Simulated assay, not measured.
Amino acid sequence: MTDVEGTALFHKTMPFTERLGIEVLENTAGLVRSRIAWDETLCTLGGALHGGALMSLADATGAVCAFLNLPEGGQGTTTIESKTNFLRAVRSGHATATAKPLHAGRKVIVVETEIHDDAGKLVAKVTQTQAVL
């Protein structure tokens, strides 16, 4: 079920997510879930959802997770490192990203995001480091 408020917040703070059609499913400090629908305009010639679209999904989801884990006095975050391992293609349905904080410090926040397909198979794993602003 789509989190309408969370989706609106994603789109307001990161307009690119609206263009990609990202929907938020869950939006808490401990877990942020969002998804992107397979669409031929977001694919490679082989019909697989483009890695850049998947990375954008993971980056946005991880960024919100980091923001929700800001320390007292933190104003925001910015990605300073992101590592993606692609494991399989998405050729239909949705790609769903689930982000969890690994470390929420005063200067950096590390988030791990997994992307799964509709069958629950792991598509990509992303580790992201966010600087606290």
Rank of each mutant, 00 (worst) to 15 (best):
33 R>G: 00
24 V>G: 01
74 G>L: 07
91 R>H: 07
8 A>T: 12
60 A>P: 14
118 D>F: 12
5 E>F: 14
9 L>W: 13
103 H>I: 15
75 Q>A: 15
84 T>Y: 07
112 E>Y: 11
28 T>I: 11
74 G>I: 08
34 S>P: 12
97 A>N: 01
33 R>E: 06
4 V>P: 14
32 V>L: 02
14 M>H: 04
125 K>H: 11
50 H>I: 02
39 D>I: 06
8 A>L: 10
81 E>P: 14
31 L>Y: 02
6 G>F: 00
33 R>C: 01
124 A>H: 03
56 S>D: 07
29 A>E: 08
31 L>F: 04
77 T>A: 10
107 K>D: 15
66 A>K: 13
118 D>W: 07
124 A>R: 09
35 R>H: 02
80 I>E: 04
127 T>V: 14
131 A>N: 14
65 C>A: 00
72 E>G: 12
57 L>N: 08
58 A>T: 06
5 E>R: 12
128 Q>F: 01
52 G>N: 01
86 F>W: 10
120 G>L: 09
24 V>D: 03
52 G>I: 06
13 T>C: 13
30 G>W: 01
124 A>N: 05
123 V>T: 00
72 E>Y: 12
43 C>A: 03
56 S>L: 06
35 R>P: 02
130 Q>L: 14
63 A>G: 15
58 A>I: 08
34 S>F: 05
34 S>N: 00
45 L>C: 10
57 L>S: 01
98 T>E: 15
57 L>W: 00
28 T>R: 04
2 T>N: 11
38 W>V: 05
117 D>Q: 02
130 Q>F: 12
63 A>V: 00
5 E>C: 04
20 L>H: 06
106 R>Y: 13
28 T>M: 05
8 A>P: 11
1 M>A: 03
3 D>L: 05
67 F>D: 15
94 H>S: 00
52 G>D: 04
3 D>K: 10
97 A>I: 04
73 G>W: 09
105 G>C: 03
